[in-house]
Design a protein around this nucleic acid. Sequence first.
DNA 1: GGATAAAAACCGACCGGATGGATTATCTTC
DNA 2: GAAGATAATCCATCCGGTCGGTTTTTATCC
Lengths: 211, 211
Amino acid sequence: MSIAELEEIRRSQILLAALTVMSRKGSFDATMDDIATAAGLSKGGLAHYYKSKNELFIAAFREFFARVFERCRESMAKAPGPLEKLLAFDLLFDPQEPYVPLGYPILFDCMAKAAHDADYGRVFGEWVEGWIALLSEALRLGVEQGLFRPLDPDPIARAVSAIYQGVATRWFLAPARHSRDWAVNAVKEAITRLMEPYILRPQLEESTTKP
Amino acid sequence: MSIAELEEIRRSQILLAALTVMSRKGSFDATMDDIATAAGLSKGGLAHYYKSKNELFIAAFREFFARVFERCRESMAKAPGPLEKLLAFDLLFDPQEPYVPLGYPILFDCMAKAAHDADYGRVFGEWVEGWIALLSEALRLGVEQGLFRPLDPDPIARAVSAIYQGVATRWFLAPARHSRDWAVNAVKEAITRLMEPYILRPQLEESTTKP
DNA sequence: GGATAAAAACCGACCGGATGGATTATCTTC
DNA sequence: GAAGATAATCCATCCGGTCGGTTTTTATCC
C-alpha cells in the first residue's frame, strides 16, 4: 500500500468518524477526542491528516453534502418524467434512508454555523446550487419534451428546493405534528400546484387556455 | 421599586443581552461572560436570576419566539382578507425588520439544538404550533366568509408555514442567489397556487366546478 | 535480499487558555 | 441590622493543539 493510498483510507476513516460523532452529539459538542476515538486513532493521528478542527469539520460537511447530493441525483435519475423528477425526493422523509437520521442534525448544524461563518455558508450554498441545477435540468427537460410550457427554470427550481427544505425541517424537528404522510403530501401538493400553470396537457390543451 | 419589579427589569435586561450576544456570536459560542458584559452586570449578577446557562438560553429562545410570534400576529391582523392573511409575512424577508438580522441566526441555533435536545425541540415546536394556529384561523375565517370552499385547515396551514420556513432559510443563508424579490414571489406563488383549488370566486363560481 | 537511514505515521502526555459555576466580599435597599 | 443584589475572585474541568518519543514504512546502498 502506498502512502497516497493510506492517506485516502485514513482521511475517509476520519471523515466517517467525524460525521458519526457530529450527528450523534451535534457538531458544536463534538470534540477531537470523540472523533479520534471513533476513528480508532489518537488525536495526534488526526492532526497528521487534518491540521485543525475547523479543517476537519469543513471536510466533513462537504463529504456529507456530496453523499446526500449523490443520493438525490440517483433518485431523480430513476424518475420517469420531468414532473416526477421534481417529486423524486420522498427519500428525505424516509427514516430508513441511511442519511436521514444521521443527516438532519448535521444539516442544521451547518446552517447554524453558516449564519456566522462564510466558509460554512459556502459549503451550504454549493450544495443548494447543485440540487437546484438538477431541478433546473428537469424543468428544461420538461420544456424540451413539450410537457411544460416555456418557463424560467431558475426561480422555479429554487422555490421547489425551498419547499423541500421547509417541509423536511418541520418533519424532522416537529414530528409529533408533522407526520411523514403530511410531509409527502404537502410537498406533492405544493410542487404540483406550483407547476400547474406550466403543464401542457395534449388532450386538454384547448381548455388550459384561460381567458 | 419593589423586588418583583427589579427582578422583572433585570430578567428582561439579561434576556435582551443574551439575545444580542447569541445573535452576534451564535449561541454555541456565546459565553456567560459575554452576556454579563452586554447586560451591564457581573456573572454573579446573572447567576442570581438564572441558575444555569441552559436555563438562561431556554428563556432567551422563548423570549425570541414570543416576540417573533407577536410581530407575525400583528402583520396578519392588518391583512384585509383570509388569503391576504396567509400572505402577510413579507416581513420575514425585510432586512429593516428588527428581528430579521437578529433572528435568523437564533432560529437556526435553536433548530440545531432541537435536533439533539428535546427541551429545545419543545421551544421550537410550540412556536411552530402557535404560528400554525394563526394560519388555521385565517383558513377557517375564509371558509366562514364563503371565500374558501370547505377544507381541513391543519395540513394546509402546516404546508404554508413550511413554505415560509424553506424560502426564508434560503433567502437568509444563500442570499447571493436567493434575492428578496425571489423570496417574496416564491412564497406568494407557492401559497396562492396551493390555495387555488379552495378559492371560491362568486362571479366565476360556475367555471370553478371542474369535471 | 539484507542492512541501514530517513521519512512518515502514530501515540500519549502535556500545555495554556477558556468556561460555567461556586464562593466570598461588598454594596444597596428596606 | 438584615436581606437582597451585585461584583470580583476562585476553582475544577475541559479542550484544541503541540511535542517528544515510538513504531512503521520507504528508499537507498551494497
